[in-house]
């Protein structure tokens, strides 16, 4: 239990340090590389503490408090780290599913025609294509949309995954 609490507290600490840092930056973004750096430092602190601190070094299989879970706690920490940015970004990305359920939640009931006013090509196709161009995933010459080399590689990987999965193209 002690090792788990230590790793979870260090995870919360890394989020707090990151949030404090974000408060002092003018750019409205999450500074994700910085978060990974902070969380890596916290992980090193964890390993340093459990292998060198006299109290944390001792394990005892009979006591739940000092149950030998050094590696499990570290593994749990590593698994939790990517969840923070993923959940954060999911609040920015308004997916059509989120919009549908939010509309249904707010309005109680809604028809297909009303829903289609919110889910339209301008909002979900054109805007996404523009976002892909802006982020350098595709190129646009005024008439044709084309893929850049890194996106072609990404598509090839997806094709392998599709073969493994045996499903049609998603979307």
């Amino acid at each position: 239990m002690l090792y788990l609490i230590t790793s979870i507290l260090l995870f919360i600490l890394s989020i707090f340090i990151h949030l404090i840092w974000c408060r002092h930056k003018d750019v409205q973004q999450l500074n994700i590389a910085l978060f990974f750096f902070i969380s890596s430092v916290c992980l090193l602190i964890y390993f340093g503490a459990v292998y060198f601190h006299p109290y944390l070094r001792l394990e005892d299989t009979r006591s739940l408090w000092k149950f030998p879970l050094k590696l499990t706690a570290a593994f749990l920490y590593i698994l939790l780290v990517p969840y923070y940015p993923v959940l954060y970004y999911s609040s920015f990305m308004h997916s059509p599913t989120q919009i549908i359920v939010l509309l249904l939640k707010e309005q109680g009931g809604i028809t297909l025609k009303e829903l289609s006013q919110h889910i339209n090509d301008e909002r979900f196709i054109i805007a996404r294509l523009n976002s892909l161009i802006k982020n350098g995933y595709i190129a646009f010459d005024g008439y044709y949309y084309r893929l850049v080399p890194k996106t072609i590689l990404f598509c090839r990987i997806l094709n392998i995954y599709q073969k493994l999965l045996g499903r049609e193209m998603g979307g």
């Binding site: 990517p82 993923v86 997916s95 059509p96 599913t97 979900f124 196709i125 054109i126 996404r128 294509l129 976002s131 892909l132 995933y137 595709i138 008439y143 044709y144 949309y145 084309r146 893929l147 996106t151 072609i152 990404f154 598509c155 997806l158 995954y161 599709q162 999965l165 499903r167 193209m169 998603g170 979307g171």
Partner: peptide
Amino acid sequence: LNIYGPYESSLSVRLIREIYQTLPQGSTI
């Protein structure tokens, strides 16, 4: 959340794959 979800339901991934189908010419809107 990060592998199957985007494959199955991401709009951006689908759009990229639609353009990939028309390599090397590309697609119009």
